[in-house]
């Protein structure tokens, strides 16, 4: 089966240690194409390290990645990582500068900056934007880059509830544009229940994969903080607190 036909990306028995401290202990998981997978676990358990290994930013000590090394990634980091001397539009164009077709890069940048509601701020520099707007710009940049896999590291945390819901709704909107395979890291159960098709639950350090949950309900029908998944919610809290 060729790579493009393979319905899954796969991580097999991934382990990682920093010195004597083991952070990932034999993690194996499948990531279906065009799905949204949440990696849920307590803060500092090694979720970001796992994401960095998938993206090829950090080598695993052992284990195997199937499909990941051959594809392109976009990444919305915990910190927006914007270039302060470039305008919003230029920040997106910077990420797209490896693409050969300049005209289509510009069109994509404009399309996604508009989708993020930042078209009026296209010429503004990041320091002139609020923290929430910078997060939106970082999300827009990740989606504007035509990658095979989109990685989001705590992209909705450290902001107030209203902004968090705004960001997650923006994510849903951007995701619908191209339905890209997305893996996002969070320590918030509600975020995972609101956005994910599948939830991988990591234990505390060294992280092991505790469980995989599938949510069949369409994303558009979900409400943030609703009790529709109360049983699953309770189970997830029990698992991450265990």
């Amino acid at each position: 089966m060729s790579l493009s036909e393979n319905p899954f990306f796969r991580a097999e028995s991934i382990t990682k240690s920093f010195g004597q401290r083991q952070v990932l202990s034999g993690i194996s998981a499948d990531f279906p194409r065009s799905s949204v997978t949440a990696i849920l676990g307590p803060s500092g358990c090694g979720k970001t390290s796992f994401l960095n290994i998938l993206a090829g930013l950090m080598p695993a000590d052992s284990g195997k990645l199937i499909g990941f090394p051959q594809v392109s990634f976009s990444y919305s980091f915990q910190d927006p990582r914007l270039l302060p001397w470039l305008s919003c539009l230029d920040n997106i164009l910077f990420a797209l500068s490896g693409l050969t077709d300049r005209q289509s890069s510009m069109e994509r940048a404009l399309r996604f900056i508009k989708a993020a509601g930042l078209d009026a701020y296209a010429a503004f520099k990041p320091l002139q934007l609020s923290g929430g707007m910078r997060r939106r710009l970082s999300l827009a940049r990740a989606f504007a880059y035509p990658s095979d896999v989109c990685l989001l590291d705590e992209a909705f945390t450290s902001v107030d509830l209203k902004l968090r819901i705004e960001l997650m709704n923006l994510f849903s909107l951007l995701w619908r544009e191209e339905k890209r395979t997305t893996i996002f890291v969070t320590h918030d159960v509600q975020d995972a229940l609101y956005l994910a098709d599948r939830i991988l639950v990591f234990s505390s350090k060294p992280a092991r994969l505790l469980d995989i949950h599938t949510i069949d309900s369409p994303r558009e029908a979900r409400r943030y903080g609703s009790k529709d998944f109360s049983e699953l919610e309770e189970l997830l809290y029990r698992q991450i607190l265990s």
Binding site: L57, R81, A95, L96, S97
Partner: peptide, 8 residues
Amino acid sequence: QMAMVFKV
């Protein structure tokens, strides 16, 4: 690292 991910 960001620039590397986006293959700039």
